[in-house]
Design a binder for these strands. Structure first.
Lengths: 239, 239
DNA sequence: CGACCCTTGTGAGCGTGTGAACAAGCGGCG
DNA sequence: CGCCGCTTGTTCACACGCTCACAAGGGTCG
């Protein structure tokens, strides 16, 4: 109970966690340029957020800044990496080697940022055995063995929607407790498993919503402004 | 003033907008199964959200449900599609035909969901002229012509980080006002341009953070549980 | 050594998002 | 024709996140 967990127990808001990687990227950039300190204002500008938000976010990590000066880039970089768990690599397995899985397997950014791809799995016998980016695709049923050999921490699901839940279950059974889901479907996982999703079509639909609003507003403006005529919105395809 | 904008003026919260596509997907699924009505509870379960939230979200679109019965699937589907601007296709251009751009160009889900890929552009002469998924890659400087020919509404940036801002500027200059950015960098765009981003490495880093916390908690449990020895949390990295 | 400048860290106010609870209202059944 | 069960639509309270504003405090220069 009365444990001295002062350092770790600091609960970091989810919204802040999602921004830490942005700061990290900016810091790396700044470090490469040789700057040794950085102000919250500059860091905010580079990361595309508000300066006050930056300061508050960083304050959750601890008081690593110096008033009147700013933050020591190297030190902050170290602390943030530690907090994000980036002091060592996390091995990744990609499940589903179709178009997207293929591209992800070839994406160099993962390894560069500390997420080397340790294994590729699929269920389709036509794909199994093929080599992508130097890694041989194995059958998904071998996951337990693979997870035992390598220390797999994160699973990426790039299968069709129908197969995703089954694959997730297999990943979890093999001990993977962090999953990034690209399949356009809702996955249900135990509460101790972290799940994030990236749905490309959903992103486009959200953009579509706002685009729709924008063009609708334009039409209204065009109709009301010049004539003031009765508002009978002409069908969209009048271009 | 006294225009009949009651229908459109309802301001829909951003969080709700982001969920509408999920509902839409569930509705399509339900419609395929032949169900004609659906309750908020079932829709919630399928979409992985809270039932009260579903009802509130749908209420922003209007009162399209029937008490005691539920929502008419077809009708709700229509209203939601209309609201999301999915009654017609939106043409998409993909900029940057590397690994990821290639995969995106081949992804059938875009066309299926009403986002046909109208053009592919790149700056690398070695890529220009090649045909991906039936579409010839053209030079990015031709964007104005391409945008004039096709009605391009949405641009997807799949270039390296360094090129992204320049590409975004070109897209915007060509009249594209909705952008989905896959490049790991912060883009600055005019306020009338919608911008969403998908950063794969960031997603993994967020997962890494929580994974880190989980394993750290496990270590603490292992230390405290068996012996009950004095809790002197071994400093993570003996600073 | 003291005054001043600069930037951090944080407290308060505000808006948005969430979840529970409940009245309103529709359909079916006796 | 009236009652009853079911589901919506909405209200309320609360939690969370964001922004502003400012005191606290380190560094620097005269």
């Amino acid at each position: 109970m009365a444990d001295g967990d002062k350092r770790q127990a600091r609960r970091i808001p989810e919204a802040t966690v999602a921004r830490l990687p942005l700061y990290l990227r900016s810091l790396v950039e700044v470090a490469d340029e040789g700057m040794s300190t950085i102000s919250s204002e500059r860091l905010a500008e580079m990361s595309g957020v508000n300066a006050a938000k930056v300061r508050k976010d960083l304050s959750y990590l601890g008081s690593y800044g110096t008033r009147g000066v700013g933050y020591d880039v190297e030190y902050l970089l170290f602390q943030m990496s530690r907090e994000l768990g980036l002091t060592h690599d996390w091995h990744v397995v990609i499940a589903g080697i179709g178009n997207l899985g293929h591209a992800l397997a070839n994406y160099a950014g993962f390894r560069e940022r500390g997420f080397p791809i340790a294994a590729l799995v699929d269920a389709d016998p036509r794909v199994i055995g093929s080599v992508v980016n130097g890694i041989t695709v194995r059958h998904i049923d071998e996951l337990p063995d693979i997870a035992a050999d390598q220390q797999i921490s994160i699973g990426i699901i790039a299968t069709p929607a129908g197969a995703a839940q089954g694959v997730a279950d297999q990943l979890i059974a093999a001990g993977v407790s962090s999953i990034l889901n690209f399949a356009p479907t809702v996955l249900t996982v135990p509460p101790d498993v972290s799940l994030r999703k990236v749905d490309l079509a959903v992103e486009l639909q959200i953009l579509s919503f706002y685009q729709q609003r924008k063009t609708a507003a334009q039409r209204v403006a065009q109709i009301t402004a010049p004539t003031g005529a009765t508002v009978a919105p002409p069908p969209p395809a009048a271009s």
